[in-house]
Amino acid sequence: MADLQDEPHSVGVGAEDVPVTAPAFTGGALDRAAELLAVHPVADGCNTLVWTLRLSPYHDIDTPDTGVDTDIPRLRAGGVGAQFWTLLVPPGRPRPDAAADQVVSDTLEQIDVARSLMRRYSDSLCLALSADDMADARNRGRIASFLGPVPGSTLTDSLGALRAFHALGVRILAPAGAPWAEEGLTAFGHEVVKEVNRLAMLLDLTGCPPAAACQLAAASKAPVIISNTGAAALNPHPGNVTDEVLLALRAANGMAMVTFDTARTGDSLHAVADHLDHVRAIAGPEGVGLGASFGAERGGPRPTGLTDPSGYPHLIAELLERGWTESDLALLTWGNAQRVLRDAEFTARAAQHRRAP
């Protein structure tokens, strides 16, 4: 069950405020979904808005008509209480072969844009560095904002960049594409994992080949995540996670967060729910989360009913009608993400007694 430290502040889940094309639900499922999200809001594992704002810095996300699929009214309408803002360059974007120093420069610029976003919209967004920050933001009616992941390719033969990113507020690292994790962990890769654990950061295995993902999950003493994915058993897209990796996540107390990317999870809300059903069946109720991958300019393909964050209540209503219990839904939306963060912090406290920087 989600960790309720204090009586939570109700997060605005007025789904009626922002129209969403979605199926009608029976038996008050949509009302029950809104009530649940008011107490256990969504902790979304992936949003690319930082990249979009870097390219178009004059968007105002305080209003719904911004030309992007993410803004504060839609986040609130969907019951989003925590957001992981990815600092990766989206797939297919420029600079796939950028030199290491250029990747670092790009990442620092992304961090600057993200922190500027927190400052500009401080009444709604607040930088979060820990699980306590996540709960505190919810209780104050704000959206907890975690920075990351940053690309593992920014680390070469020194952990200094990792510690610098941590000092800037980054809490997630993505090893995919890094030379120290591509074909099995190198000696330096093992040091990276140990330092990530010591810093209470999370490893995001999105995009890692199955063998590498399993090795990373086993090497980390803290839970790992996959911030946006689908079930390869339902759709063998290269970005989707295999059952082998889902079982490794279950063994490592990690979680896979299901995306709303039509190429990976289908073109309807029902198809996304199918992927959530499968991930829960293999990884367990404590191993599934939500990582929609919103944040792009409007017009891209999205599942019907899930075209922006305001669609979350409709997805929860669908899962209620499929027989998900409210306790399992509380884990899906909030509890699993907070538990992974708390476990990482517990691991860090133990590691800091044994390992100096």
Rank of each mutant, 00 (worst) to 15 (best):
G305E: 13
T48E: 12
A137K: 05
R355I: 10
A271I: 08
A131E: 15
N235F: 07
P90L: 13
L199W: 05
W85I: 07
G287L: 04
H40Q: 02
T347Y: 05
A232C: 09
G79C: 02
P41D: 10
P210N: 05
V39T: 14
V272D: 10
A181N: 03
G177A: 10
T48R: 03
R54L: 04
A131L: 06
P94V: 06
A178H: 00
A2G: 02
D71P: 02
Q110G: 14
A256E: 08
C208Y: 00
D261W: 01
A178D: 01
C214R: 10
V103Q: 08
N235W: 06
L269I: 13
R322T: 11
G28D: 08
V20F: 07
R163E: 15
E191T: 07
L108W: 15
N235R: 12
I282A: 06
G148I: 05
L155Q: 01
A161D: 09
M255S: 11
V80A: 01
I225C: 03
A144W: 02
P175I: 03
T26I: 11
F25L: 07
L36A: 12
A33P: 05
T206R: 11
G177S: 12
V245C: 12
F84D: 08
E7G: 01
M134E: 05
D65M: 05
R115Y: 07
E286P: 00
S227V: 04
L341A: 14
H314Y: 15
L202G: 09
A296Q: 09
G289I: 11
L30W: 01
S105H: 14
R171Y: 00
S220C: 03
D44F: 04
A296L: 08
A351V: 03
P41E: 09
I61P: 10
V272L: 03
R264D: 04
G239Q: 13
L117D: 11
P313L: 13
V13N: 14
V150L: 06
G79Y: 01
A232L: 03
L306D: 08
Y121N: 14
G266I: 07
D136K: 10
A348I: 01
R264Y: 04
P90S: 14
W334H: 15
V103C: 03
T86I: 04
E191F: 00
Q338W: 02
M201E: 10
G287H: 02
V20W: 03
A344L: 01
C208E: 11
D62A: 15
A34G: 05
P90T: 14
P309I: 09
W334G: 11
R354I: 10
V272Q: 11
A356P: 00
C126E: 12
V68T: 15
